[in-house]
Amino acid sequence: MQWTINGQVREAEVDFRTSLLDLLREQFQLSGTKKGCNQGACGACTVLVDGERINACLALAVQYQGRTITTVEGLAENGTLHPVQAAFIEHDGFQCGYCTPGQLCSAVGMIGELERDHPSAVTADLAANGIEWNRDELRERMSGNLCRCGAYNGIADAIAAGLAKELGEELGEELDEELGEEIAR
């Protein structure tokens, strides 16, 4: 069986019961992806498959053969942290760090959802062309990633700042403006 993980083609023969999460953690020693509940409730295992975020604990390894998977270990490029990673440090978007890889992958996956205009539960106008990007959209979309230490404010600040950097003038500015207002307040 074969997967492309963080840009590398990886091969292994695994039990058909093996989850994508256990494949990463136990077969490939990519233990950055975390097991928090193993039943899709906490989001700690979030990874990107072809750019979309999924819970790796609910995915079977066999099911994802041939797919392109990005884990937290693959977010930095050539030793440079992804803007969202750097912002997590700056804005204290974590305490114990266990939910952090899932938060990060989830945040990066969210960018694509916004670019593709996927609405969320708080999107005011589902028929509108384009999503009005605001703090509530961010918070709603990140609500599948639990943080028991309660770093939620820092996480939201970090993602807003990181996305502003990543997306520049598009979605970023709106968000950064709102963030700036909140910080000023």
Partner: peptide
């Protein structure tokens, strides 16, 4: 900022079951 921040955001912080 946290001294262990880089390890925690890159997934290199190794927890007991890892």
């Amino acid at each position: 900022s946290r001294v262990d921040g880089a390890e925690k955001v890159t997934g290199s912080a190794r927890f007991a079951g890892e």
